[in-house]
């Protein structure tokens, strides 16, 4: 399915949930926070967050800042 992840639309194969997407992107779930169609997915709920064609996903994490 096509997903827009951090502003870039790409085709992803064999993905059902946010957890699947993070694994595909080589991201450890505990290091990121995810917004799915502008709703925050609480950590621990990535497995039950189902993705659909055209969804918008923002994957965010802490970086250095003042």
């Amino acid at each position: 399915m096509n997903l827009t992840v951090n502003g870039n639309t790409k085709l992803f194969q064999d993905i059902k949930t946010v957890t699947d997407l993070l694994i595909t992107l080589n991201l450890e779930p505990e290091t990121v926070v995810v917004e799915h169609n502008t709703t925050i997915i609480q950590p621990g709920s990535f497995d039950s967050a189902h993705l659909a064609e055209g969804d918008q996903v923002e994957i965010i994490r802490f970086v250095g800042g003042g």
């Binding site: 951090n6 502003g7 290091t31 965010i60 994490r61 970086v63």
Partner: peptide, 19 residues
Amino acid sequence: VTVALRRVNLDDPDDDIMK
């Protein structure tokens, strides 16, 4: 300590400050 939030750079996902 203060930290900021930014989009993960999907081309370089291994850059994790919390570690």
